[in-house]
Amino acid sequence: MSGGVDSAVAAARAAEAGHDVTGIHLALSRNPKSYRSGARGCCTIEDANDARRAADVIGIPFYVWDLSDRFHEDVVEDFMATYAAGRTPNPCLRCNEKIKFAAVLDRALALGFDAVATGHYARLENRPDGVPELHRAVDDGKDQSYVLGVLDERQLRHSLFPLGDTPKSEVREEAARRGLLVADKPDSHDICFVADGDNAGWLREKLGERAPNHGGEIVDDESGEVLGRHGGTYGFTIGQRKGLRIGRPAADGRPRYVLDIEPVSGTVRVGPHERLAVTSIRGEQPRWCGPAPAAGTRLDGPDVTVQLRAHGAEHRAVVAVAEDGMDIELLDPAHGIAPGQAAVVYDGTRVVGSATITAAERARAS
């Protein structure tokens, strides 16, 4: 129970369905003020109190589990290291993989519980052979199956997502009917451990001299002209337009975007938007939401798509499964794809699996 409306209603529904429910709030920082401040639905003392009050209304036991050390090592440190290496991570996927459905689930099973229920917007369906499948939520605008694409079959067997069949507006109405004071609490946004939402500023403060190269040049990728200097490659992500501070427009008057980041040399390469178009992707460290397809399998049905951002569009694709990952051909080019992001593969509404992007090949210039 994060302290937000979704997990509160999920807990209430699980209890109403007859399950023996215990509410768990995760203390992810030994100094909560160093993470999110304000009522944002994650990581603060306010949120812990909101979760406790919701548990009291529902009538279930409530505990706080301190996972701050594990969270810092598996999520925060990974976030910093990935940015320092010139890649763009998604800490929500890492938190689901390493914390909520690993550390929490393992402890829950050891204590005799059967499953972890969360307020994520996703659905579980069982195949005739009993294997669970992860599917998109009914509410497309709130669907969170992308950030759950790292869950394997074992984790899905011990998971419950009570909100997957309900639009968010109805969840808030239900919370109000149940007397839950979080019914109108704003949704959490951005990254929970970046207090003010300024990722670049947070990374600058935390990384500093730890980055492989904390300064370098901003270079026009077409002409090779040096356009300016920056204070650290960790302040940039591929596809970024704002905050480049290059001082003057391109000769054609069009804006420039970050095309490549070279953390060793400290070079950030920029160019026009059309140079961001990507047609093929290499993904490694695959995670399959069910039995793993054999190496050599091609996923190329009419409903096969790939999603590359948490709230991004789906792209029709052909996926070739390899021993150590997957090679993805995008039938609909994508823009601004960065190593470190996750590629989540769907067949219709079903999540097939995911992989971490290690390389992206741009479309050939016409």
Rank of each mutant, 00 (worst) to 15 (best):
62 F>T: 07
62 F>W: 14
62 F>G: 08
62 F>V: 15
64 V>S: 08
64 V>I: 15
65 W>G: 05
66 D>T: 14
66 D>V: 15
66 D>R: 13
66 D>Y: 13
66 D>S: 12
66 D>M: 13
67 L>D: 00
68 S>I: 04
68 S>A: 12
68 S>M: 07
68 S>N: 08
68 S>R: 02
68 S>K: 03
69 D>C: 01
69 D>L: 04
70 R>T: 15
70 R>Y: 03
70 R>E: 14
70 R>G: 01
71 F>G: 00
72 H>N: 09
72 H>F: 11
72 H>W: 08
72 H>Y: 10
72 H>Q: 11
73 E>D: 12
74 D>L: 10
74 D>G: 06
74 D>K: 10
75 V>E: 01
76 V>L: 08
77 E>N: 15
77 E>A: 12
77 E>P: 02
77 E>R: 11
77 E>Y: 05
78 D>Y: 15
79 F>G: 00
79 F>C: 03
79 F>N: 00
79 F>L: 07
80 M>L: 15
80 M>E: 10
81 A>L: 12
81 A>V: 04
81 A>G: 09
83 Y>H: 15
83 Y>V: 02
83 Y>E: 01
84 A>R: 01
85 A>I: 05
85 A>N: 09
85 A>K: 07
86 G>Q: 02
86 G>F: 03
86 G>R: 00
86 G>W: 00
87 R>H: 09
87 R>I: 03
89 P>F: 05
89 P>R: 02
90 N>R: 03
91 P>Q: 05
92 C>W: 06
93 L>C: 11
93 L>H: 08
95 C>T: 06
96 N>K: 04
97 E>N: 11
97 E>F: 07
97 E>Y: 06
98 K>M: 10
98 K>H: 13
98 K>W: 01
98 K>S: 09
99 I>L: 11
100 K>F: 05
100 K>I: 08
100 K>A: 05
100 K>P: 02
101 F>G: 01
101 F>S: 00
102 A>C: 09
103 A>D: 14
103 A>L: 08
104 V>T: 10
104 V>Q: 04
106 D>C: 04
106 D>Y: 05
107 R>P: 00
107 R>A: 11
108 A>L: 08
108 A>W: 07
108 A>I: 04
109 L>F: 15
109 L>N: 11
110 A>L: 10
110 A>M: 13
110 A>C: 09
111 L>V: 06
111 L>R: 11
113 F>C: 07
114 D>F: 12
115 A>M: 15
116 V>D: 08
116 V>T: 07
116 V>E: 08
117 A>I: 01
117 A>Y: 02
118 T>D: 09
119 G>Q: 03
119 G>S: 08
119 G>T: 02
119 G>F: 01
120 H>K: 05
120 H>D: 07
120 H>F: 04
121 Y>A: 07
124 L>E: 04
124 L>A: 14
125 E>A: 15
125 E>I: 12
125 E>W: 14
126 N>D: 13
126 N>W: 14
127 R>I: 13
129 D>H: 15
130 G>Y: 14
130 G>E: 15
